[in-house]
């Protein structure tokens, strides 16, 4: 059963106890594309991936993987994909090589192919020298690479990557991104999640922005760039407080919104380079000393508000409503406070 679409999702929802973690989302992923789920901590990305990969049963909705319904044709659906979960889950008691060989057996690969593919992947992911070392002695980055290699073992048609680069240093993250891009050239369809706008922009053909379990928009990075630009900001604080600052700063040309956070003002604009000198001039003219001056990249929360048409800076989420369970450790670091 071949299908045009690699993944078809409709009306997908998940409720934990009474908490709605994924709120009736619909989307399709085309064959061969890299599709990204971009959202802040607790948005519902992992929950969605776990449902797509049969590890979690949806409360509502349907999922087709390469045309196979995951609940009714689980066996066939499972043969279509490989998963890289949020936390690397290699068998720490086994060597890198044994991990790959075992995965090959779980996917019923014939022995010869299993061995060939293992050698190939160890090389591709730079693990040949450590192939006989138990994975418990691996660094985080090596475990990540091994986890990805294991997901690729049976040459899946679809690869799920949940935060492929989280917790890695810049260099390792870049290596992994390069590999994902290369792999997908003539390889699998990729579904990835990330909370980094840059990563989504660099890798994805299309991006879905998700928060609070809802998809706000699905579009190409090119189109989304305009949105991202409009929610960059300059953050400034002066030594003297004056209620007049806010209006004065709002008059600067190119500034779309000014939001006050504590003693700081945040000026949103799609052309920060023009705004910065004007802020300096204002400080000069008023004989103010600048205490803080930061340029802020787009924060996901702001992007989300922007595309859902709510006003930036006006709606703050109560962190308490989302801080239960696994997502909580990282908290919401929108950079907005």
């Amino acid at each position: 059963m071949e299908s045009e679409k690699a993944i078809e999702v409709s009306g997908l929802a998940k409720t934990y106890k009474k908490f709605l973690a994924v709120d009736h989302v619909d989307f399709d992923v085309r064959r061969g594309e890299i599709f990204g789920f971009l959202g802040p901590n607790g948005a519902g990305k992992t929950t969605t991936v776990r449902m797509l990969t049969t590890l979690l049963e949806p409360t509502e909705g349907s999922i087709r993987i390469n045309g196979y319904d995951v609940s009714r044709q689980a066996y066939h659906a499972k043969r279509q994909f490989g998963v890289v979960p949020e936390e690397s889950n290699v068998y720490t008691e086994l060597s890198a090589q044994a991990n790959l060989l075992f995965t090959g057996r779980l996917y019923r690969m014939p022995r010869g192919e299993r061995e060939r593919r293992t050698t190939e992947l160890l090389k591709l992911f730079g693990l040949e020298e450590k192939q006989d070392v138990k994975a418990q002695f691996f660094s985080k980055g090596m475990r990540r690479r091994l986890t990805i290699a294991m997901a690729m073992m049976h040459r899946p048609a679809i690869l799920f990557l949940d935060e492929a680069t989280s917790g890695l240093d810049v260099q390792s993250a870049r290596t992994i991104r390069d590999q994902v891009r290369q792999l997908s050239e003539n390889g699998p369809t990729v579904f990835l999640t990330t909370h980094q706008i840059e990563e989504a922009n660099q890798l994805c053909d299309r991006v879905a922005i998700i928060d609070h379990g809802k998809i706000a928009v699905i579009d190409t990075p090119e189109h989304l760039k305009a949105v991202f630009r409009s929610v960059q900001s300059v953050e400034v604080a002066f030594d003297r407080k004056d209620p007049g600052h806010r209006d004065a700063l709002g008059m600067i040309s190119g500034v779309s919104t000014v939001v006050k956070h504590g003693d700081k003002y945040r000026l949103y604009s799609d052309d920060l380079s023009a705004v910065l000198p004007e802020v300096m001039d204002y400080a000069h003219a008023k004989k103010l000393r600048i205490i803080t001056l930061n340029t802020m990249g787009p924060s996901l929360e702001d992007v989300f508000l922007q595309v859902t048409g709510r006003q930036i800076g006006t709606v703050r989420h109560d962190p308490a409503d989302k801080s239960l369970g696994r997502g909580s450790g990282k908290g919401r670091k929108g950079g907005n406070r």
Binding site: L55, Y75, K78, V83, Y91
Partner: peptide
């Protein structure tokens, strides 16, 4: 705990 059980659950086996 190691989440390796997910590997078995996601593998094409009953």
């Amino acid at each position: 705990r190691a989440r390796t059980y997910d590997r078995l659950m996601a593998a094409p086996m009953a």
